[in-house]
Design a binder for these strands. Sequence first.
DNA 1: ACCCCGATCGTA
DNA 2: ACGATCGGGGTT
Length: 168
Amino acid sequence: MTGRLGAAYFAQPTLAVAADLIGRTLVRPPFYGIITETEAYRGQDDPASHAGKGQTPRNRMMFGAPAHAYIYLIYGMYHCLNFVTEAAGQPAAVLIRGLQLTSPTPQTLDGPGKLCRALNITRAENGLDISSSSALYVGDEKIPLPYTTTPRIGIKQGTDKLWRFVAA
DNA sequence: ACCCCGATCGTA
DNA sequence: ACGATCGGGGTT
């Protein structure tokens, strides 16, 4: 008997969620995969975050309720999947960067753009409530995986923070 | 209206 | 090391 992670889970501090998601199962029927890489982004005191300079039409999901998807287009051709964290009004999210697919075909997805491309995730689903959607959610079972922390990838500010979490 | 550039990726 | 590709956001 398994369930899913809901609003109470994603309302936790962003760093804790980003670390804890390593080893959990992302469900995107017909795809299942173990989350192997994440990054934390917070609006406050985080110049690397989209929400670092306040709310805009693009980043508004980050300011909303936890357990919703924040999906945006990057470099004109790739999408990035995030899960909104912390309480509504507090801008924060966790970027899902790596997945070890187990079904329907074993495959390593290393990189947020590749991940979204493989799972057919686009901003058409921006704002999706992953606490109730059957199209996308995170299972509550967990495989304990050791992980390391590093600076986040592809940013020019905030590189001093070790907010990237990678399964060892 | 214009300009810059990005939480990326594949190829060279 | 570099080009693809385009929308967001700040500036004129």
